[in-house]
Design a protein around this nucleic acid. Structure first.
Length: 557
RNA sequence: UGCCCCAUGGUGUAAUGGUAACACACCGGUUUUUGGUACCGUUGUUCGAGGUUCGAGUCCUUGUGGGGCAGCCA
């Protein structure tokens, strides 16, 4: 039998298992805890798990790991499902760890009967003392050798709510001298008198991750249970639990390195802090590395998937340059986004030899990369706005935009030559006067003379006011986690990470567009219509800039 | 001074004992009605030391460096 070629170490394990007959199919799962929004790191995991199932003709479940009701909320459940669907994936089965609470309880009882679990009355503090340290073995709990009957009775009473939180836990009886801390009689159940977002008040004891996860995997007949590196030391425990219980199969836990990105943070705790402190405007702030944030920013799901594909899967700790993500976004948008003209920082341009009240409608390609995208018509008249960066009184070397006496092309329109400027009281150029060549309609001339510069523009009479929000890195340092003693990572928050431009001039076709629509603002970057946008007040988010060769030249000078 | 994992250009990833390659970034060029796109090219890589082998990025030993583990979190 032939399988697709493996492109990372996990796929190698999968193909080996398939070839050896260890498994006849592939069944993975994506197991988020609903205690926060998904971020680009989760997107990597989603693409891996769902992608594996797709590639090998298998299935992938979505399972919420909701065993800690004090942190979990329905809002997060909903956002997670929404994000996964938006990314372009469909789960085979939907499960919640909480759906297995009764079975888990029965398994725990089974383990007590087998002498593999006991109720411990040690306080959290005492348990820590008894556990030992990284270099010293632990000591057995004085409650370790309780009789099966006593354990059964105590565990039942824990379930019935007879004890206060923190007074009792159910522990696995393994080895207090193990060099692997996870095997030093880990807790299986704790008392939490907290209502659960799905089971309500049914339970006041909740199972721990290590006890729950492997069993859930086995019950769902997961073949390859993929998780991140920090669970490596838990694998012996994962395997141990499955051996104590009659389960239908033995899934294989495989660990890979989580994603890190430059100039941002990925831990849920830090992201939560950004949201709660008001540094950003919610989980879907376009600066956030959350899927919701990137979606609002205008990142297409195809770009996120391409990114996940390019970064690969390995066990080495690494940090991906955020430029690669931006490359994937540009690559996708270049193929699909319609080009429009919007002047971000307008300056008035008057064509002295153009008839006063005349309006021409000119043809413009929607996307030169895609002939099927068609054309639209844009209005042209005597008074226009152009980008203030596109004119200089004292042009530096290699500047081939507009200056006095120079000729440039207005995209899709005419050649113009600047002649004079009018300044405001502060001495800033307020208006540029120019003349146009009526023979150059469409932006080219019969004599074949070359113009170096091409500017975008918007007819003053037809321009639509817009607000445009431009974004920069969330943090000023490549690695925001790398902070000196006594300092907080929030000190590295980039106060200039958002720049709101008002009074931008957009071409009129943009009025009819919908929230989420993505465009290339010619010569500037990719932008999308923000949720806040209204017909009489357009709001755009900058998704990513275009590459800018001139900016590099300017920087060198 | 316990246990586990990792080490390939600037950043990532591949090479499965047989010519170290791909992407991004960088630098240079060609094309261009976007200083975009596309295309071409340059620079640059196996952590150190031993060993096995005809041959080692790959296997072994060891050193060094990095990461993880002492929640009744996941």
């Amino acid at each position: 039998m032939n399988y697709p070629e493996a492109s990372n170490f996990i796929e190698e394990i999968v193909t080996t298992d398939l070839a050896s007959g260890k498994w006849t199919h592939v069944h993975t799962r994506f197991p988020p805890e609903p205690n926060g929004y998904l971020h680009i790191g989760h997107a990597k995991s989603i693409c891996l798990n769902f992608g594996l199932a797709k590639k090998y003709g298998g299935q992938c479940n979505l399972r919420f790991d909701d065993t800690n009701p004090s942190k979990e909320e329905t809002e997060y459940v909903d956002s997670i499902m929404d994000d996964i669907k938006w990314l372009g994936f469909e789960w085979s089965e939907l499960h919640y760890a909480s759906d297995y609470f009764q079975q888990l309880y029965d398994f725990a009882v089974h383990m007590i009967k087998e002498g593999k679990a006991y109720v411990c009355d040690l306080s959290a503090e005492d348990m820590r003392q008894f556990r030992g340290t990284l270099t010293e073995v632990g000591r057995n709990s004085p409650y370790r050798d309780r009789s099966v009957d006593e354990n059964l009775d105590l565990f039942e009473r824990m379930r019935l709510g007879e004890f206060d939180e923190g007074t009792h836990v159910l522990r696995a009886k393994i080895d207090m001298a193990s060099p692997n801390m996870n095997l030093r009689d880990p807790a299986m159940y704790r008392i939490m008198k907290v209502p659960h977002h799905r089971t309500g008040d049914t339970w006041c004891i909740y199972p721990m991750y290590d006890f729950t996860h492997g069993i859930n995997d086995a019950l769902e007949q997961i073949t390859h249970s993929i998780c991140t590196l920090e669970f490596e030391d838990h694998r012996p425990l994962y395997d141990w639990f499955l051996r104590q219980i009659p389960v239908p199969c033995y899934p294989h836990q495989i660990e890979f390195a989580r994603l890190n990105l430059t100039y941002t943070v990925m831990s849920k705790r830090k992201l939560l802090q950004l949201v709660m402190s008001g540094a950003v405007n919610g989980w879907d702030d376009p600066r956030m590395p959350t899927i919701a944030g990137m979606r609002r920013r205008g990142y297409p799901p195809e770009a996120l998937r391409a990114f996940a594909e390019k970064i690969g899967v390995a066990k080495m700790f690494s940090t991906i340059d955020i430029e690669l993500l931006q490359f994937c976004v540009r690559e996708q948008l270049n193929k699909t986004a319609h080009r429009v003209m919007v002047v971000l920082r307008p300056i008035k341009l008057i064509i002295d030899n153009y008839p006063d009240d005349h309006v021409e409608w000119l043809d413009a390609d929607n996307n030169p990369e895609d002939p099927d995208a068609g054309k639209r018509q844009i209005p042209f008249c005597k008074e226009l706005f152009i980008e203030s960066d596109d004119f200089k009184e004292d042009p530096p070397p290699k500047y081939f935009r507009l200056s006095i006496g120079k000729e440039i092309r207005l995209k899709h329109a005419y050649y113009i030559t600047a002649h004079s400027v009018v300044k405001d009281d502060c001495g800033h150029v307020a208006t540029i006067h120019c003349t146009y060549d009526p023979e150059s309609r469409g932006g080219w001339s019969k004599d074949g003379r070359k113009v170096l510069g091409t500017s975008h523009w918007v007819s003053a009479k037809h321009a639509v006011e817009a607000e445009v929000r431009c974004y920069d890195h969330l943090f000023t340092q490549q690695n925001p986690e790398d902070v000196a003693e006594g300092h907080d990572f929030m000190e590295g928050f980039n106060q200039q990470s958002i720049q709101t431009l008002i009074g931008c001039k957009a071409e009129p076709s943009l009025v009819e567009k919908n929230v989420g629509n993505r465009f290339q603002f010619l010569r500037q970057g990719y932008f999308c219509v923000d949720n806040d946008s209204q017909r009489d007040k357009l709001v755009f988010n900058q998704t990513v800039t275009l590459k800018d060769a001139w900016a590099k030249i300017e920087k060198k000078n």
